[in-house]
Design a protein around this nucleic acid. Structure first.
Lengths: 145, 145
DNA sequence: GACTATTCCATGCAGGCGCATTTAATCAAG
DNA sequence: CTTGATTAAATGCGCCTGCATGGAATAGTC
């Protein structure tokens, strides 16, 4: 817990000092930029990022507010919508990656050999294994399933 | 990051379902209960728990509000004060431990042998090593040193 | 076709955090 | 003793989160 908090904090600080928004924005922009057509449903995004539903909704709010993404109507299912990344969004994602990758290298890569990193992954994966799947999702969604 | 979030989330959920307050309260109560006389200065608590200064101040607020701790005057240094754990505080700490230890065993202990746990610790420690010390502290404190 | 259940997304509210600043006491010089 | 710097703790403000709920569209049932 201690180490995770330190490393994540350090990386976020690096990004902030470089004048970039929080990591969550990067994660979302990356997912969107990889999606076919640069657009996806909020539900998809939610599943990819493992964050609760309302959190997705508000993250999209902020991205739209900054002109990094746009909400588009979904004709197949009028409850839903599409989120589409804009050019500005793609651009920011790329620029953030340079700072982000440097931070990762600085705070993680440079401290562990590839073999050690693999060992670490292996050990951590065992912890995640049978963690009941509902627990890390939206409590909302989890409760109703 | 993913695993840490899951495991911590699962443990916190277990505590919450058992009707207990957040983990941070337990950490604070444990520190206090171990301190000589059951009391310590906020600054000490801050260092032990690796959380920022204002966060300590507010955590103490909540503990006091619930009657788990009390603020006592500090005669040597009138800027400061002592936080003293109450009987109710000691009691809660003990009751929480039963739920907390069970959660740890369930989500961590049962999934890793002692040897594996030791390996994991070793690998993680290397990540925390030369992480610049100021970064994980209060930005306030960090900036002025 | 009417009714209920379910899914998708948004939002009001309360609480917590980070940041900056404030207040008050101590320390360090001259 | 006075002045300025430093340290301890608290707090106002804005943002983010979690929880619960709301409204709108769809799917399933008889």
């Amino acid at each position: 817990m201690r180490i995770q908090s330190r490393v994540l904090g350090a990386v976020e600080q690096d990004l902030k000092k470089a004048g970039f928004p929080p990591l969550a924005w990067y994660d979302a922009l990356l997912e969107l930029s990889r999606a076919p057509g640069g657009e996806m449903r909020p539900v998809e995004l939610e599943k990819q990022m493992l964050i609760p539903q309302y959190s997705t909704s508000r993250l999209i709010d902020r991205l739209v507010e900054e002109g990094l993404a746009a909400r588009r109507e979904c004709k197949m299912d009028k409850r839903g919508l599409f989120v589409e990344i804009t050019e500005a969004g793609r651009d920011l994602q790329k620029r953030m990656w340079s700072a982000y990758s440097a931070a990762i290298e600085r705070h993680v890569g440079s401290k562990l050999s590839d073999a050690d990193a693999a060992k670490l992954c292996g050990l951590l994966d065992r912890l995640g294994c049978s963690c009941d799947q509902a627990a890390q999702m939206s409590p909302n969604t989890a409760a109703t399933r």
